[in-house]
Simulated scan of single mutants.
Amino acid sequence: MHRTVIELLERNAAHADEFRSRFDDVQDAQHPAAVTVCCSDSRVLQDLMWGNDTPGHLFTVGNIGNRVVQRTDAGEAVSGDVLYPVEHTGTRTVVVVGHTGCGAVTATYDHLTEGLSEPAGIEHCVGLLAPRLEAGVEALPDDLSRTEAVNHLVEYNVDRQVEFLRESDDVPDDVTVVGVVYDFQDVYAERRGEVHVVNVDGETDVGTLRDEHPEVDERVDRLWTY
Score class of each variant (00 low, 15 high):
residue 4 T to R: 13
residue 5 V to L: 14
residue 10 E to L: 10
residue 15 H to E: 09
residue 15 H to Q: 06
residue 18 E to R: 13
residue 19 F to H: 11
residue 20 R to Q: 10
residue 21 S to G: 13
residue 26 V to F: 03
residue 27 Q to R: 15
residue 31 H to V: 05
residue 35 V to G: 04
residue 42 S to N: 13
residue 43 R to G: 13
residue 44 V to N: 02
residue 47 D to T: 10
residue 49 M to H: 01
residue 50 W to F: 15
residue 51 G to P: 03
residue 52 N to S: 15
residue 52 N to D: 15
residue 53 D to L: 07
residue 57 H to P: 00
residue 60 T to I: 14
residue 60 T to P: 04
residue 62 G to E: 11
residue 62 G to F: 02
residue 62 G to M: 04
residue 63 N to T: 08
residue 69 V to C: 01
residue 73 D to L: 14
residue 77 A to I: 01
residue 77 A to F: 01
residue 83 L to A: 06
residue 86 V to E: 04
residue 92 R to L: 11
residue 100 T to Q: 06
residue 104 A to P: 03
residue 104 A to Y: 01
residue 108 T to H: 04
residue 109 Y to F: 15
residue 112 L to W: 06
residue 115 G to T: 04
residue 116 L to I: 12
residue 117 S to K: 12
residue 128 L to P: 00
residue 133 L to Y: 02
residue 136 G to T: 05
residue 139 A to D: 14
residue 139 A to C: 10
residue 141 P to R: 13
residue 146 R to K: 13
residue 151 N to H: 06
residue 155 E to M: 07
residue 157 N to G: 13
residue 161 Q to V: 09
residue 165 L to Y: 04
residue 178 V to W: 00
residue 181 V to E: 00
residue 181 V to Y: 01
residue 183 D to K: 09
residue 187 V to E: 06
residue 188 Y to A: 08
residue 190 E to M: 11
residue 192 R to D: 09
residue 192 R to Q: 14
residue 194 E to N: 12
residue 199 N to V: 03
residue 201 D to Y: 06
residue 202 G to K: 11
residue 205 D to K: 07
residue 206 V to H: 03
residue 211 D to Q: 13
residue 214 P to F: 04
residue 215 E to Y: 07
residue 218 E to A: 13
residue 220 V to L: 03
residue 224 W to Y: 10
residue 225 T to E: 15
residue 226 Y to I: 12
